[in-house]
């Protein structure tokens, strides 16, 4: 397997003003290489939700994207903490620990991680107080 395209994006904690900008950049990048619109839409949803999670819940983070010649796009969303205390709770639709500030902006539906799992072909999440890593795969 050869990586044809590798990109990295930094997400800054609490930068609500630019929330979604990384997801938009990823979408634009993948559109230029001709990825199917339906798959692109699923990727966009997953990236947006993960980006927002990094802003709201984590201390920012790094998103890496690899497009490979085996027909997959893989993403790793890695943040430096503080981690998710109970992953089962976090994966339950409707469960949220979002702050009042975040809720006022329309976040905190408790649908972020469930949405990400729903739209991705491969999904893995690992979390500890040192950080959370979400790995996603999409088959083109």
């Amino acid at each position: 397997m050869t990586v044809l395209l590798h990109e990295e994006f930094v997400v800054t904690r609490g930068d609500y003003k630019n929330a979604g900008s990384v997801s938009s950049a990823i979408k634009d990048k993948l559109r230029t290489i001709g990825i199917d619109a339906k798959i692109l839409r699923r990727i966009s949803i997953a990236c947006y939700e993960a980006e927002i999670n990094m802003l709201i819940h984590a201390w920012g983070g790094l998103i890496t994207m690899d497009v490979s010649d085996d027909g997959t796009v893989r993403f790793v969303f890695k943040d430096p903490g503080p981690g998710i205390p109970d992953l089962d709770d976090a994966m339950t639709p409707g469960f949220s620990t979002a702050s009042d500030d975040a809720r006022e902006m329309g976040f905190g539906a408790g649908m972020g991680l469930p949405n990400i799992r729903k739209v991705s072909d491969d999904f893995d999440i690992q979390s500890s107080p040192e950080g959370t890593t979400i790995t996603l795969g999409f088959h083109l």
Binding site: Y16, A19, G20, S23, R41, S44, I45, Y48, M105, G106
Partner: peptide, 15 residues
Amino acid sequence: VQVHLNVIAVSSLCE
């Protein structure tokens, strides 16, 4: 009734 900046990102991504 949401008017925050993120409405734009969501609308754009949802097409």
